[in-house]
Every structure is written in structure tokens, then in C-alpha cells.
Simulated assay, not measured.
Amino acid sequence: MKLQGKRALITGGSSGIGFAIAEAILAKGAEVAITGRRLDVLAEAARRLRQGGRRVESIAADVSTETGRETTLKLALEKLGGLDVLVNNAGGVRAGRLEDATEAEIRTMIEVDLVAPILLTRAALPALRASKDGLVVNVTSGIALVAAPFYATYAGVKGGLAKFGESLRRELKGEGVHVMTVYPGATDTPMMRSSRAGPELGFTREPANAVAAAVIEGMEQDAFEVIRGGEARAKMIALNREDPAALDKRFLDLKPALAEAVRDHSAL
């Protein structure tokens, strides 16, 4: 895909990976609409993105709600005059032991990380088809490829989003809409601030702009997926497929320290 002149809607675009993707796609000559729930953060993000005279629209909405999705798509289409790229980036996490998570926290992850992108994509498909060069980008997580303990629900919904994208890519093949799935590793974003897991536990954080650069490259190459984490992640993925018991043992050794490090990891 050539990004020059494309019209992109990025959910959760006011911070973290979403903001970095917005910066990167604007630099390629695209027009962007970002969404966010916090008006002050959204306004500041839009101000920063508009520097240099770039076309940036901001939409205050919660895409986990029906009203928020309707508002998001309606305003994006009105302000941009159509839609070529949808980036489903908004997400939330609550780590820790499953029995310590409340039902409300579990349902929030399901709604924000899985239901919202499915329903927003469904609503956006007519506009993406009309583009004749449409693209859906689903930002999942490396945990969708190698599930870590204490992230059971998060792994479930991100894994679900990944398979949703794979199925939809095949469903839309030949219809002018491509689907790409992104698997970030640990990234230095506001979502990770409450996590104390570091490199010693396998959570080596990279800058959000590095993830965004890889996403843009994937868009331009019509890639099926973008997997972050380098050789170490690739080895874990292979081990998880070939000898999952060995990976279970590795996680068993890390469990006490990991449980403590992610006990308070929450961004919902």
C-alpha cells in the first residue's frame, strides 16, 4: 500500500503505540483521525500531531460502547471524506492471577480488546471496500503467540483478535481490503507503567516509535503480520510449538518473581 494521501482512523491514538503509528503514517503523507477517551490527553496529542500543518482530526469516544463506535466512524468519515485504513489499537489489560480479577475487569478486556475491534471493523467495511485499497490493522500482543502466566484473559482476547484478523483476511481476499496483524512485545507505553516486569523476566521494552516503524513497513509491503521481539521472540515461538513443556518449565522457574512484578499491572 502506498500511504501518501490515504485516510486513516486510529483507535487509542492519543498515546503509546497508537500515537506513534499516527506520527509515522502522517510522515508518509496520510491524513489521520485519532480516537481516545480522555479529552485532555486527546487534545494534546492532536496538537502535537498537527505540528507542521499536518491533517489530524480527533474524536473523543469510547470504542468499547455502541455509541462510541457509531460516533467514531460517523465523524471519521465526515472529517476525512472516506476511509482507507482502520487501525484497531485501543486496548486494556489487567494482569495477575485469574481468580484475583473481577468479573468487571475480565468483561472490560473482552469488550475493549476483542468485541470493539470486531464490531468497528464490521461497521467500517463498506467504506474500506469503497476505497478499493483498504487496510485493517489489528494491534494484538506477543502474548497472543506465546501466552505468559498471569495474563490468561488478555492472552485469550488478543489471541482471539489475531485469529479474527487471519480469518477476515481470507474472507476479504480479492475484494480490495487487506488485513494485517501486529504482535508487539513489551513496549514503553503508558499501558506498561504499572508493570514491574523487566528484562530479567523476559519483558525488554522497546520504544513505541520502533513498533510504529515496523507497522508502517508492514503496511507498505502488504505484510500479513508484524512480530516484534527479534530473535529471542522467534525462538520462544518455535519452542512453544515444538516443545511447549520446556517453555512451561521456564515459566515455572519465573513464576514467583513474575507474579509479584505484574500483580498491579492494570490499564483499563
Rank of each mutant, 00 (worst) to 15 (best):
G156W: 12
V146D: 06
Y151H: 07
K158Q: 09
R169Q: 14
R129D: 11
V139M: 01
F164N: 01
L135A: 06
T140E: 08
L128N: 04
K173F: 15
T121E: 02
P117I: 11
G160V: 08
Y154M: 06
T140K: 02
V136S: 02
L120D: 01
K158S: 09
I143E: 12
L145N: 03
R129K: 15
R170H: 06
Y154C: 05
I106N: 01
V139Y: 01
D133L: 09
E175W: 11
A144K: 03
T153Q: 13
V146S: 06
R129E: 15
F164D: 03
D133V: 10
D133K: 14
E175R: 15
G176L: 10
N138H: 01
I118C: 12
N138A: 02
V139T: 06
L114S: 04
T140C: 13
A124Q: 09
G160M: 07
T108W: 09
T140L: 02
D113P: 00
K158E: 13
T140M: 05
R129G: 11
D113G: 04
L135R: 00
E175Y: 09
K173M: 13
M109D: 06
A124H: 09
K132V: 10
L145G: 01
E175K: 15
G156K: 12
T108V: 01
L128D: 09
A155Q: 02
A124L: 08
R170D: 13
L135T: 05
L120W: 05
A155D: 03
V112S: 12
T108N: 04
V157Y: 13
L114W: 06
V112L: 14
E111C: 00
L128P: 00
R170L: 10
A152M: 07
R122V: 05
I118R: 04
A130Y: 08
D133Q: 14
A152P: 00
G174E: 10
A162H: 07
S141K: 08
L125F: 04
K132E: 14
T153V: 15
G142H: 04
K163Q: 14
R170P: 00
K173H: 15
Y151G: 02
S167E: 03
G165N: 05
T140Q: 02
P126D: 09
N138W: 04
R107S: 01
K158F: 10
L172S: 13
G160W: 07
G174K: 11
E111R: 12
K158T: 08
P117H: 10
R169L: 05
G134P: 02
A147K: 14
T121Y: 08
E171A: 03
R107C: 03
K173Q: 15
